[in-house]
């Protein structure tokens, strides 16, 4: 290993930027989280209230609901993405004419701004004008209305997220699969293993680090999804059935200007995300260390 001073020097610019635009705001939010501070309360000052914000948070049904919505949303979306992405990556492993065309088309959703994705899906699903409810009604006589039906709205945001992020999973899985050594698989086939056995006992264990990595990235980003859901369901409706914790924080900090409570909420969410991701990270490094 080389002189560590040069190493620190190389690392420094990144760390300085992350410190200034990342850690410094974090410290501020941490600080504000211990205060009762709302610009439009009778006393506008910041009043130190210790852990009162957190005390209130662990009982706040709106916050806990939002958290639960977020967790369910992330769970369903990420699991589906993993399954579909893995499957599609397998399908791309083999060469066939037109492969790169299909692959390029498949990447398109990744390139669209989340806020535009929300708008597109709103246009698709808005009752009266959108083709989805229209066709469902015409073909199956099925009443699809994301403004009224909470489970349909939830389904819509999950499907939208699957549509948006599966390409990323596919590409990462594909990169992983292409990099796998082929000998073990061939050896197993020679030994008479069937396709499923090869997949279950060879490919899957080999892919474990990739799966963990994708899981990590998707969970990390899924938990902070705001723009597209906010746009699609117009702020998390019907009721609060699609109000993710990101949207909820947004509503508490922006219109309610409840900076103290919103900061605490933000930190608690960050805390839960970090803990969840830390477990994945540890299992990832432990897998690698072996």
């Amino acid at each position: 290993m080389r002189k560590t001073r040069t190493g620190w020097l190389l690392l420094a610019p990144s760390m300085i930027i992350l410190f200034v635009v990342g850690i410094v705001p974090f410290i501020y939010v941490l600080y504000v989280g211990f205060f009762d501070w709302n610009l439009f309360s009778a006393s506008r000052e910041m009043n130190f209230t210790g852990v009162d914000n957190y005390r209130q948070l662990v009982f706040d049904p709106l916050f806990l609901d939002a958290l639960w919505v977020t967790i369910r949303f992330t769970f369903f979306a990420v699991v589906s993405q993993l399954i579909i992405g893995f499957f599609l990556a397998q399908m791309l492993l083999r060469d066939f004419p037109g492969k790169s065309f299909f692959r390029t088309i498949h990447t398109i959703p990744l390139m669209i701004a989340p806020i535009a994705i929300g708008a597109i899906w709103r246009l698709l699903t808005i009752p009266g004008f959108g083709p989805v409810p229209f066709l469902l009604d015409r073909w199956f006589d099925f009443d699809f209305n994301i403004g009224t039906n909470a489970s349909q709205a939830f389904l819509a945001i999950v499907i939208m997220d699957i549509w948006h992020w599966t390409p990323f999973v596919t590409l990462t899985m594909l990169a992983g699969l292409s990099a796998l050594p082929v000998e073990p698989r061939e050896a197993a086939l020679v030994d008479g293993a069937n396709g499923w056995q090869v997949f279950r006992y060879i490919t899957l264990p080999q892919m474990q680090p990739v799966v963990l990595t994708v899981l990590f990235i998707r969970i990390m980003d899924g938990l902070r999804t705001v723009d597209e859901i906010n746009m699609l369901t117009n702020g998390g409706g019907p009721g609060t059935s699609t109000r993710t914790v990101g949207i909820h924080i947004f509503r508490v900090v922006f219109p309610q200007t409840d900076y103290g409570y919103g900061s605490a909420m933000s930190l608690l969410t960050l805390y839960l995300t970090i803990v969840a991701c830390w477990f994945l990270f540890v299992s990832l490094t432990q897998v690698r260390r072996r």
Partner: peptide, 19 residues
């Protein structure tokens, strides 16, 4: 470093604005 990406952005806008 990775944890920097995890923060829900809304509450961080105020310190960033002040910064």
């Amino acid at each position: 470093t990775l944890t920097q990406r995890m923060a829900p952005p809304a509450a961080f806008l105020l310190p960033l604005f002040l910064l």
